[in-house]
Structures are given as C-alpha cells and as structure tokens.
Design a protein around this nucleic acid. Structure first.
Lengths: 232, 232
DNA sequence: CGGTGTTGGCTAATAGCACTAGCTTTGAGC
DNA sequence: GCTCAAAGCTAGTGCTATTAGCCAACACCG
C-alpha cells in the first residue's frame, strides 16, 4: 500500500475545502478520509481529534480572513477602509462559508492556543480601520467590540443559510457600512460615553481596558476562554 | 408501566431547558429522554426527528424573544426603544443560550413553515423601533437588515461562547446602541443612499422591496429559503 | 360496567459516527 | 543494507439517531 503523503497541513486544507463544499456540519472524518483517498483512522496520525481538526480549520480561516482584510484596507482610511474591510470579510465568508463556520463558538484553551493567536491577529486590521476615525482612546475597545458584532453578525447570517438573499444585498450592505461610518464619525470626542443612560456614570470606561494592550497582547480570562476582543 | 404524560409541548419545553443548561450541541435524544424519565424511542411519538425537535425549539425561542422585545419597547421610541430592544434581546440570549442557538442557521421549508411565521413575527418589534427614526421608506429595508445584523451578531457571539466577556460588557453594549442610534439619526432623508460608491447608481433602491410588505406578509424566495428579512 | 381502539410507552436492532489498539509496511537516515 | 520512526491498515468499542414491532394503558361508547 503506497503512502498518500499526507501531513497536518494537507489534511486541514482538504477539510476546509470540503467544509466549504458540503457545509461545516456535514464534515465528517469518514468523508474527509474518502476525499483524501485514505481510511478514516489514518487521519488520526495527523490530527488528534475532530475537535482538533475544527480548531485548525478555524485558525486557517482566521489567518486567511485577516490577510484578506489587511490587504483590502492597505492604503485606505475612513469610510473607504471601513467599506473595504467589511467587503473583504463578507467576500471571504461567502466564498468560504464552511471554514468560517468553524470559527463560530470557539473557546481558546489559553494564551498559547493557536486559536488565541490567530484571533488576536485577526483583529489587527479592524483596529487599523478605527485609527482612521476620531474615536477617543478610551472608547476604542467599545468601537472594536461594536465592529466585531456588526461584521460577525452580517458574516454569520451569510454563512448560516443567508445565501438566498434578495438581489440588492450589496446595496443593503453598503447602507450598513454607511450607518456604522456615520455613527463612528459622530462619536463624541470629549471622552465621555454618550447615551448610556442606564449605566452608573463611573462605570463608563476603564482606562486599563484599552484596545491597544488587547490587540498587541494576550487578553485571556482566568477561565481560559477568550475575552471578547479575541473572539472571532 | 405508567405513562409519563408527555406531549410535543412538554418535550420541546424540556429540550429547550436542557439546551440552556448543557449547551445546544450537547442536547441529544438520549439525554432528553433521561431528563423526561423515558426511553429514547418514546420521544419519536412526539417529535418526528431531532431536526424537527431543533426547529420546534427555534420556533419557541423566536416567539419568546419577540414577546420579550415587544414588551420591552412598549411605550418607548427612538434611542430609548432601540436600547430597550437591544437589551431585551441580549438578556434573552444570555439567559437562554441553548434555545437561541437553535435559531442560528435555520432554513425554512416554505411560507407555511412555523419557522417562517415565527421569524416574520420576530421582526415586528424591530420595525416598530425603526418607526421612531427619520428613515426614508425606501431605506427601511436596509435599516431593518442592518439592525438584524447588529443584534444577531451580538446575540450570536453571546450564545456561542462569548459569555466570559469582561466585566464592562454592559458599557460596550450601550456604546454599540449609541453607535447605531447616531447612525440612524444621521440618516440622510433626501431619499438617496449615501456612500455606496462602488455601486451602480440606478441599483441603489427598489421601491418594491419595502420592509412593510415583508414584515406583514410572507416573503419567501422561490427556493423556499427565508428571505433575509425573515431570517432570525 | 365491559369491550374496543388509539396511543404512548417499551425492547431489540440497524447504520453511521468518532475514536483506539495493535499490526504491517514504507521510506528516510546512518 | 540496516534500523526505526512514522504512516498506513484492520478490527473493534461505545456512542449517536432512528425504525420495527410489541404490549399495556386509557378514553370512549354501547
């Protein structure tokens, strides 16, 4: 029996491709093995488990989407960069729904988890976009979380059954980008968070929770789960 | 052997509760049967399959979240209503993560699918919130889609592993609501969509694609999938 | 009060799933 | 050319959802 010449990279790449084709939930070890022309147990020579495989697919996807967004925003600023980032992310999710689905609901095991590193890296382009707006430093964390929610929401809808959208989805998407752009440009720059009427005023921001340390460093909660800044 | 007195409602309610406790992916027919003090095959007297069970849980969740948002926005308008809706949705997802997870990635089978009806009903409160802003009628569809993306993104992050968020998540959440509020209030009212610089101008809006008909009626694509307005 | 029929529970069995143990064979390095 | 780790394999385990078929419980009806 000749060797198939597999390694972890080949297995993960094939799995990601297969997930894009048949949908992430339909990705089974048996189907993947068949795709690779190998028997199921052989896969366990390259990945530890199905969960391990899923995490590796997620890391691949996070790296790829970060690259795509980074490339798309290169040399742009403001609404231009925001739109380019959003479009790049959406394009990625539409063309690679399976591997993007692998990134939903991940929990990192710790600071050295490749998932953590990939997720942190994936936020870089977003904070770069934010630098094109007059968002006070104390609010960059909030803005980053907001961007993540918005784009993740849009991307998730596309990745999980939203593909039969009506024809003018591009227009709605640009409208959403404009909405965020308007909101970001109208951000009060006096350092106060506006509108949070139900909140205790002195809880409104914590200087230690700035986005810079989060993006650059490793911000993992004691339980080992990713903090929100590191979640995909 | 005495009867357990089950019916579909009891089974689905128990399943939703169990999903909230142990997480939606961990919900198995065996565990549900054990919870109900019954053997696994007995469940199939009340639900057709696991997929059927998942859909019923999703419908339950959609109904409940629609009720919660509707109640929270009663008598409010503008940012007040927006914040109340967002908070109600977030509270629901935090307290019922399992059943909300059942609503992610659903595809309806047709106009009479209970999932379709529940999803359409769930959008009512959001369009009510929108009526408190000066959004031109041609843009309400875009605005509705935007709101859905934002809140679904936030909710999804919470439902799928985002629960160990840092302590000031409430503050970030209010900041997000303010961001959307600012963006909505700054919506140009001249009927033109601003900013969609990469789009063909005459594709910028279609009067026939208004949100009103969608929210009130049944807008299902020919393939049977829900249109975006009806997706959870 | 005595059937009668539906219905809700059961046991047993099947196919597919992830995964492990243990064997064989390949192929690279000395 | 030999050695040995690594990469494939077969066989088997225990889980999953699901079906078939049986039997008892209960509501209704004469």
């Amino acid at each position: 029996m000749p060797r198939a010449g597999l390694d972890a990279g080949v297995v993960v790449a094939a799995a990601a491709e297969l997930a894009d084709e048949i949908g992430f939930p339909e990705l089974t070890m048996a189907r993947l093995a068949e795709r690779l022309g190998v028997r199921t147990p052989s896969l366990y020579k390259h990945v530890a488990s199905q969960e391990d495989l899923h995490r590796r697919i997620a890391v691949l996807a996070l790296d790829e989407v970060a690259d795509a967004i980074g490339a798309a925003t290169q040399g742009r600023a403001g609404r231009d960069a925001l739109g380019a980032a959003a479009r790049a992310m959406r394009d990625f999710v539409v063309t690679h729904p399976g591997r993007y689905a692998a990134t939903i609901g991940l929990t990192a095991t710790g600071p050295d988890d490749p998932v953590t590193i990939a997720a942190v890296r994936g936020l870089g382009p977003f904070s770069a976009v934010l630098r094109g707006y007059d968002v006070p430093p104390q609010q960059t964390t909030h803005a980053l979380r907001a961007l993540r929610s918005v784009f993740h929401g849009f991307a998730t809808l596309q990745a999980t059954g939203g593909f039969q959208w009506a024809t003018d989805v591009d227009e709605s998407f640009e409208w959403l980008v404009d909405l965020i752009d308007r909101g970001l440009r109208a951000t009060p720059t006096d350092g106060r968070v506006v509108g949070g009427e139900g909140l205790d005023p002195d809880r409104r921001h914590d200087p230690d929770d700035g986005a810079i340390t989060v993006v650059g460093g490793r911000d993992v909660s004691p339980t080992g789960r990713l903090s929100e800044e590191s979640q995909p």
